[in-house]
Design a protein around this nucleic acid. Structure first.
Length: 753
DNA sequence: GAGCACTGC
């Protein structure tokens, strides 16, 4: 042993199981966090499951043999020593090292969380990963999933209180837990996996955990990442004031080499070049499947058509040397059944001795992290992806086709080497790779609207948002924009303190505008309807519009459209879906996505539970006219900062205050162009559009958002003149009717003009 | 008269 004998340092901790079973418990006498690899190996090789006292199964023993071959297994001793001696560890492990499954188990053996009523958490950016890894680890530990080993994701808590001590979960879920228990007192060790992906939640968790580690000396933290980011995290989690980096634990991967090729000259048309490269591989390279990265659905479907045509041509011209090629599109909005096609085997040769078939998967970034396809030998990387960008000046998030980072290019190349040595064709020059590509993709926190995040942080008790210890600090303007919005919504007071309303808003997994709208909706007697609308706005687009059936799809949509606004149309769609549940084909016949509608049902019931918790009543009325007006008014209470005013007769709109020229999105179902329109999102595609739009009355805006529509602080222009006209008209009316009473003092329910 | 990179609560 190269470190002190741990037995001399601390008394044994009472082992819950050992009290009754005594020495038959393999963990008897073990000291938490003072455990040797030798002990662990003996326990693993024994006949009794140390965590359940049950006999270990044959399948356990079989899996154990495979686990022992993982690179990380050879480093158990080194890991346990580092874990014993440090509070925070940064760990790098390439793909295939086994870190996600093995390290948490090593921690279980060392930390013995079950003996102290604690848990080990291991966070993942994605739900499927949390679920599938938990399943795998439950098998490896020979326990039932949901007992000692479980997972926790939105809509599904697969854990058992008091039994589960190893919990895989989404990073967002741990953040939610932190909002109600800032000390994260249920956990003795927290492992942040895939930290290099830098999701918003992971970034916030890193900030929280760094501070928490100082308060809770008993808490251990492991940050797992890809190699390139390790030093940054080591420095960030520096343990002492002199800046000594946190210790690094390194595990080699188990992948095959990938040969990388670059183009001689930059390619002016990357889609064309990509198609050409795919066909070149098909004609000239050894058998093996191809993965091509493109940026979006349309580009992918288009490329698939072209590849198919050209490949068929090639095969017909030269059937003796060119085999069949099957082209499979892959992007997230594809139905799961079609996504499964990526796992189909390559097509067989057309004749017994003919050339072998090949499969090409044409994918978005989804194949870079979320999905792995075995058998890929060739990767074609044009070097672009759609990325979210946020412009705080005009408060707009949009998707832009942008060059990828070096880290991303490396990840893409790695996809070729999972089963055997592969090749990666980069459709840019080596010089461009070296000089033009950024090292890392900018973390999400630098590219997002932070309204949600800021509300979460305030709820977490972070008072000084600007000086919070971020791994990468967002632009001050982005924070200001978020604070401003939350202040207008009355979630934060003028000192930036959380209001009672704000603390309820933070409990809803919704954007603050939607949370506000939902919370006020009982006052408008329409919370039942607003709840539905908010759920529908939280799921992917429900409308399906197949390229060859556009007319039919549009006609079906017209049947469900409510002329006063798209929000009401969403309500109508959901209600019709619920009424027609007996008819399995209803959604399909109406060109609607069943998947999205089922998701909306799920979200709706989750939100309803939260409403019940805060005693927000579910109310409605039979008078549809009143109901629709109530919904539109509630909408104004949340989205008053997203209003556009029609300018002139040509259909041009200007956003209120920001004065952006926008057009109604063609998907908009409004009967006429209203003078004042509230919109759910601003999208920047071929030109600036506002999407999901509802007709509102200017009086409502003045009434329900007086601070925002304070004319003394309003930019001059046609919008202001129109609002001032409305205001003076109202004032005259109220003077005539009520003497001096100011409109804003009137109760909400009498607000209708 | 157009889209929906990808996640997550």
């Amino acid at each position: 042993m190269s470190y002190d004998n741990p037995y001399t340092r601390a008394p044994p901790v009472k082992n819950a199981a050992s009290s009754s079973l005594g020495a038959s418990n393999p963990l008897h006498g073990w000291l938490p966090r003072k455990v040797y690899a030798k002990q662990v190996r003996e326990a693993m090789d024994g006949d009794v499951n140390p965590f359940t006292q049950q006999p270990l199964s044959e399948s356990y023993k079989k899996i154990l043999q495979a686990r022992k071959k993982l690179p990380v297994f050879a480093q158990m001793e080194e890991f346990l020593k580092m874990f014993s001696e440090n509070q925070i560890i940064v760990m790098v492990g390439e793909t295939g090292s086994g870190k996600t499954t093995q390290i948490p188990q090593f921690v279980c053996f060392s930390d013995l969380p079950h003996t102290k009523g604690k848990m080990i958490a291991c966070t993942q950016p994605r739900r499927v990963a949390a679920m599938s890894v938990a399943k795998r680890v439950a098998d490896e530990m020979d326990v039932q999933l949901g007992k000692q080993v479980g997972y926790s994701i939105r809509f599904e808590d697969m854990t058992e209180s008091g039994t589960t001590f190893m919990k895989y979960m989404t990073d967002g879920m741990l953040l939610r837990e932190a909002m109600n228990d800032p000390e994260l007192s249920r956990y003795s060790t927290i492992i942040l996996d895939e930290a290099h992906e830098r999701t918003l939640s992971t970034d916030i968790l890193m900030g929280l955990l760094k501070a928490l580690a100082k308060r809770r000396s008993d808490l251990k933290i492991i940050v797992m990442s890809a190699t390139l980011d390790a030093l940054k995290f080591q420095k960030y989690f520096s343990v002492s004031t002199d800046g000594t980096p946190a210790p690094l634990f390194k595990v080699p991967g188990r992948t095959h080499p990938v040969e990388v090729f670059y183009t001689q000259e930059p390619e002016p048309d990357y889609v064309e070049a990509a198609i050409r490269t795919v066909l070149m591989i098909h004609r000239a390279e050894d058998p093996g499947d191809i993965l091509l990265f493109l940026t979006g659905e349309e580009e992918i479907e288009d490329a698939c058509r072209k590849i198919k045509l050209e490949a068929d041509d090639l095969m017909n011209q030269d059937p003796d040397s060119v085999g069949p090629l099957v082209c499979i599109p892959l992007y997230s909005s594809l139905p799961p059944q079609q996504q499964q096609r990526i796992f189909d085997p390559a097509p067989p040769a057309r004749t017994p001795d003919g050339p072998r078939g090949r499969k090409v998967v044409v994918s978005t970034n989804i194949a870079e992290t979320s999905l792995t396809i075995d058998g890929i030998v060739y990767v074609v990387d044009p070097g672009f992806s759609k990325q979210k960008v946020y412009n705080p000046r005009i408060r707009v998030e949009s998707l832009l086709v942008s060059p990828i980072s070096k880290a991303s290019a490396q990840q893409r190349a790695g996809r070729a080497g999972r089963t055997r040595p592969g090749k990666c064709f980069r459709l840019y020059t080596e010089k461009d790779f070296m000089t033009e590509l950024e090292e890392q993709t900018h973390p999400e926190i630098l590219r997002s609207n932070l309204a949600n995040t800021v509300l979460e942080l305030v709820k977490l008790g972070i008072t000084d948002l600007v000086r919070f210890d971020y791994v990468d600090a967002p632009a001050p303007e982005t924070l200001m924009r978020a604070l401003e919005l939350l202040n207008f919504l009355a979630a934060l007071d003028d000192d930036g303190k959380l209001t009672h309303l704000g603390s309820i808003m933070a409990e809803f997994p919704l954007d603050p505008q939607m949370a506000k709208m939902l919370i006020v909706s009982p006052e408008f007697r329409c919370s039942n309807e607003v709840l539905t609308i908010v759920a529908m706005l939280s799921v992917p687009n429900v409308w399906i519009r197949p390229p060859n059936q556009r007319k039919e799809a549009d006609a079906a949509k017209a049947m469900l459209t409510v002329p006063e606004g798209d929000h009401l149309t969403l309500l109508n769609v959901f209600n019709n879906y619920m009424q027609n549940k007996h008819d399995k084909n209803w959604a399909w016949n109406n060109y609607l996505s069943v998947r999205a509608l089922v998701q909306a049902e799920n979200v709706r019931s989750q939100l309803l539970r939260i409403m019940e918790r805060f005693e927000l009543d579910l109310v409605s009325t039979d008078d549809q006219r009143k109901l629709y007006i109530g919904v539109r008014q509630a909408l104004c209470c949340g989205f008053f900062m997203q209003v556009a005013h029609k300018e002139g007769e040509k259909g041009a709109y200007l956003t209120v205050k920001d004065n952006q020229v926008v057009a109604l999105h063609p998907s908009c179902g409004l009967e006429t162009q209203p003078e004042w329109a509230i919109y759910h999102e601003f999208v920047l595609t071929t030109k600036p559009y506002i999407r999901t739009v509802t007709d509102v009355k200017p009086e409502w805006l003045l009434e329900f958002a007086p601070q925002y529509f304070d004319m003394s602080a309003f930019p001059d222009g046609e919008t202001k003149r129109a609002l001032v006209r409305v205001q003076s008209k109202r004032a005259r009316k109220f003077e005539v009717a009520n003497g001096n009473s100011k409109p804003s003092d009137r109760p909400v329910k009498k607000a209708r003009k």
